[in-house]
Amino acid sequence: MTPSREQKLWMYEKMLVSRRFEEAIETIYLEGKKPVFNMAKGPIPGEMHLSNGQEPCAVGVCAHLEPSDVVTATHRPHHQAIAKGIDLKRMAAEIFGKATGLSGGRGGHMHLFDPAVNFACSGIIAQGMGPAVGAALSRKMQGKPGVAIAYIGEGAVNQGAFHEALNLAAVWKLPVVFVVEDNAWGISVSKAASTAVPENHVRAEAYGMPGHLVRDNDPYEIFATAGKAIAAARNGEGPSLIEIETMRLAGHFMGDAETYRPKGEKDGLTLRDPISRMRARLIADGDADEATLDRIEEAAQAEVDEAIAFARNSPDPDPADALTSVFV
């Protein structure tokens, strides 16, 4: 399964929106945090987990999804949210803690919920896997079309929730695909130091489901593999797991000094930045010329600028609204 030219350009565009969005967030996040870094200060307080480098995992999978399909994502959710089609303006406003945010400021960047595209994320490792299994169960029981995607990082594979979710999805043969974004680091602990097997796709076999490995953060390979897995889920063939070798270009969170990284690792990663690689590939393959890609760049930047401006210009929530929405 190869992406069409149109799909390739969509993937590139969404990767760019994600990257430009995070670049903007990165800059604004540091406002008010200099010269002394204090996480509580500035227009965007709290932890900030950037996903730059991991964009191919988002677009290669979400290219196959409809708004009605369900995605549960992680504490590092921006790229997945954007690829799923989340309302970028309201997502930005939520990250700023504004009244116009997706949740009126109650959630923040680790708790983005958009019912229009069935997107949710959560802050604890492997936490979204059960809900993804449940959404898939719901579709199966109601006879409604749709698959669920549970995005996790490679650090999640050692959580009990991972193993329980895989087993339950398999024993009930549910339309769910587990996507492991392997960025090689669980905060500061390497996969080699934390995980008993060198590759995690093999774990799928223990639960009687197919496990796939995509190397080198390749968006087209991710597209092809996810396409097969999602089609199988839609056809009632049950769950599967996709492991993707990706890269975390930034620290675990902003402010992470990354002293644990081997010397030179970051330089090597930057050389393999998936955005510049994809741009070169689109041109080399004759899928787009420079002018076309420049237009996509400009449109992506404009979309991000608009979302950031919307967030900046939105009012703070009424503090007392903290006491509402506990129950519906």
Binding site: M129, G130, V133
Partner: peptide, 15 residues
Amino acid sequence: TAFIGAAVGAAQDGM
């Protein structure tokens, strides 16, 4: 963990 988590996901999906 799996089946209570699944109940949350199913409830959010209309069950």
